[in-house]
Design a protein around this nucleic acid. Structure first.
Lengths: 212, 212
DNA sequence: CGCCTAATACCGCAAAAAGGTGAATTATAA
DNA sequence: TTATAATTCACCTTTTTGCGGTATTAGGCG
């Protein structure tokens, strides 16, 4: 075994794989271990092969990048992971790092940055470029400043969003209208809003609602 | 001039440019005219150069892909444009095609598909793969089924979302509360909703609100 | 010019939400 | 077990909506 860093690529975009592997093969202390187009192929590879680092697209066709991260880290804690994505959503960055990634690169990164990221991460450091980092920090802040809603509150918030009135919600949950009203008031207090319109818009803005 | 199709690439992702240009140079009847990382560079190029087709990322750093499309088509109507994106949002696909693109490729396309797209578009056909096409059709359908809100209605909808009450809106717009109420009723009728909660959630869902 | 649409305004009644206060009953975690 | 948090219910007042109408005015268009 030589002292080159071996890198494995996971990405379902053939163009990116081509660009990445080309770029990596031109770096003097880095070598390409292989690549996979799906999470399944990647896991398969790591059963009886090894690599020092994974460059991983977090939007894979089969399972979520966060999941793959967790799986890899559980089986091979020594493998470093750099997430590769276009997504500049703070919650996403947050999630992937909490699942074991040591770096997050935007897909518009160039060779220099990729090389820098690989070298940093292999040293055990966390690599985020300034843009990603500021988004990440902002998201953590926001997450902390967001109040935690109780199970019941979320449930009622969801039903309000659907357009149900307090009495309809009460009927559906087999509770009193007054109870629904109380939860609603608490939602207002917690989210610092004063009417339904604000409630819905801030709820959606902060993704407190599962889907619609 | 030989009979090869000359292709110009516009993308701010170095990896994609590398992958694409590699792929294109391996195609027998296609040649690479050049590439640009920004819309400005692309426009600059076309002042005194030419290409048969542009492969264009529609998420450029300087101006929107839709805009670049329009600009190019205005100056060089003969140039065919294939949009390249990850975005599977129907409205986006719709917009870009209405602005003059003849094809829409997802970034996870492989060489075969890119080659097929180029050859179809050069013949004057519209190229959308089945996935993109179904999204596109669905969006067109949805767009037609969406009612058109008047200027005033949009404005009031926006203010409602902020959390203002009818009287506050009336005050701000120097109109009667009753007028605001009428607009609100019309919004309910047009969007088939029966209360504020539904109004806000469907408005956001259908992106009838500028931003928040 | 008429026709249509958007925007304006008003009335009345019923329903729902908002705001305040207090309190009992479960869970659940320390 | 004992705090603490979550969930539940009640009652009261005021404000805001929701829903049914009707009607006038200004501007764009063929």
């Amino acid at each position: 075994m030589d002292n080159k860093i071996s890198v494995f690529i996971v990405d379902d975009h053939p163009l990116i794989v081509e660009g990445l592997s080309n770029a990596i093969q031109n770096m003097h202390n880095i070598t390409l271990a292989g690549y996979a187009k799906t999470a399944a192929e990647c896991l398969q590879y790591f059963i009886n092969h090894h690599a020092d680092l994974i460059l991983m697209d977090i939007n894979l066709p089969d399972i979520k990048g966060t999941e793959l991260c967790k799986l890899i880290k559980a089986k091979k804690p020594a493998v470093n992971i750099i997430a590769l994505s276009n997504i500049t959503d703070g919650n996403y960055i947050n999630a992937i790092i909490e699942n074991g990634a040591s770096g997050y690169l935007l897909k518009n990164s160039d060779k220099t940055e990729i090389e820098a990221a690989i070298n940093e991460v292999i040293k055990g450091n966390l690599y985020l470029n300034s843009e990603v980092n500021s988004i990440y920090q902002a998201a953590k802040q926001r997450q902390n400043s967001l109040p935690t809603l109780t199970k019941r509150e979320k449930q009622i918030l969801q039903l309000i969003t659907t357009g149900l009135t307090n009495s309809q919600i009460a009927e559906q949950l087999f509770i009193s209208i007054d109870t629904v009203d109380t939860h609603r008031k608490n939602l207002h207090t917690k989210l610092h809003v004063k009417n339904t319109a604000q409630l819905i818009s801030t709820a959606i803005e902060n993704q407190l609602i599962s889907e619609f």
